[in-house]
């Protein structure tokens, strides 16, 4: 089942095209939106929220048309914006309760729910403090709380770990993982931080220049028909890499004396092949281990 369907979507800012003929189906669960700066991630989120009118194409979020049902979509969506934002002059509980009231919750329910989500987001002790006095990490939690207060079916998180220290980042990622698994809330996380996406998301969409260049579950994208190995030599030996390439290995990465090769699954005993080649080319092998394709590899391959 998909939470959003987009067909041939184009969004332009004057002469600049931010999203270019994009077609994508976003599955339910937790999906990461990846891409370099200017890839169109934030523009896509703003368009899905109904803030921007598409120049061409169409889209649906939770079965509602993005061009004509912006209000209905925002009723069922929570947004945690990237930038630092709060309603001035309010303490956290008043701010989150007001966010609930803006979504139509009766004030008593909104206040009760504000206490609940602030506790859930780890701000229970600080909920009567003015939001302007919060640290960056607390502001991030507050933004998450206001996005969750009305019980949305879909939450957009734009750079949710920006400015967090390692402990705060761990807690935020655990919160995201918690709400997006088994709580009936779908999450779309836009981030530059690949480890964050890897820890929280089931699937990823990689964008570049306003288009989708890679999509799938992380497990699918990591799987490969080849066998990848990391080989570390005492010193760089170009002849070693050349000889392995001649044998059908595909060099993926070369950093100093460290190499990553992808061998065809049909090669047979590749350990033997690596050590024999090393002996023949005078290379000293200091490390040899099977490599795992990381999200960073997937991302770099997609945007190159």
């Amino acid at each position: 089942m998909s939470i959003a369907r987009i067909a041939n979507l184009t969004v332009r800012y004057g002469s600049k095209t931010a999203v270019n003929d994009l077609t994508v189906e976003i599955p339910d669960g937790c999906t990461g939106l990846l891409g370099p700066n200017g890839a169109g991630k934030t523009t896509l989120l703003k368009t899905l929220l109904g803030f921007l009118i598409p120049t061409e194409g169409s889209g649906e979020v939770l079965g509602m048309n993005i061009a004509t049902q912006g209000l209905a979509i925002r009723q069922r969506i929570g947004l945690m914006p990237e930038m630092d934002c709060h309603i001035p002059g309010m303490n956290a509980v008043t701010f989150v309760a007001l966010s609930g009231e803006l979504c139509g919750m009766p004030s008593k329910n909104a206040m009760s729910r504000a206490h609940e989500v602030l506790e859930y987001c780890g701000l229970g002790e600080a909920r009567y403090r003015n939001a302007e006095t919060y640290s960056t990490g607390m502001k991030q939690r507050l933004k998450l709380a206001q996005a969750l207060v009305h019980g949305p079916k879909l939450v957009f998180l734009d750079e949710p770990t920006n400015g967090l220290d390692p402990a705060g980042r761990d807690e935020m990622l655990a919160l995201i993982r918690d709400i997006s698994h088994g709580k009936g809330v779908n999450v779309i996380v836009s981030s530059h931080l690949l480890p964050d996406i890897e820890r929280t998301c089931d699937g990823v969409i990689v964008m570049r220049s306003g288009r989708v260049v890679q999509q799938g579950t992380i497990t699918e994208l990591r799987s490969t028909t080849e066998v990848q190995v990391d080989v570390e030599l005492r010193e760089p030996v170009p002849a070693f890499a050349q000889r392995l390439s001649d044998m059908g290995a595909r060099p993926i990465r070369e950093q100093g004396s460290s190499y990553r090769f992808a061998f065809p699954a049909t090669l047979g005993n590749l350990g033997q092949a690596v050590f024999i080649t090393a002996k023949e080319t005078g290379a000293q092998v200091r490390g040899f281990r099977p490599a795992q394709r990381s999200l960073e590899d997937i991302f770099m391959e997609a945007i190159e």
Binding site: L71, L79, P81, H86, I87, L102, Q146
Partner: peptide, 15 residues
């Protein structure tokens, strides 16, 4: 609201 970027909070709600 402009200073605190609160407009984004208000208008991301069904408003």
């Amino acid at each position: 609201d402009n200073k605190a970027n609160a407009m984004m909070i208000y208008l991301s709600k069904p408003l």
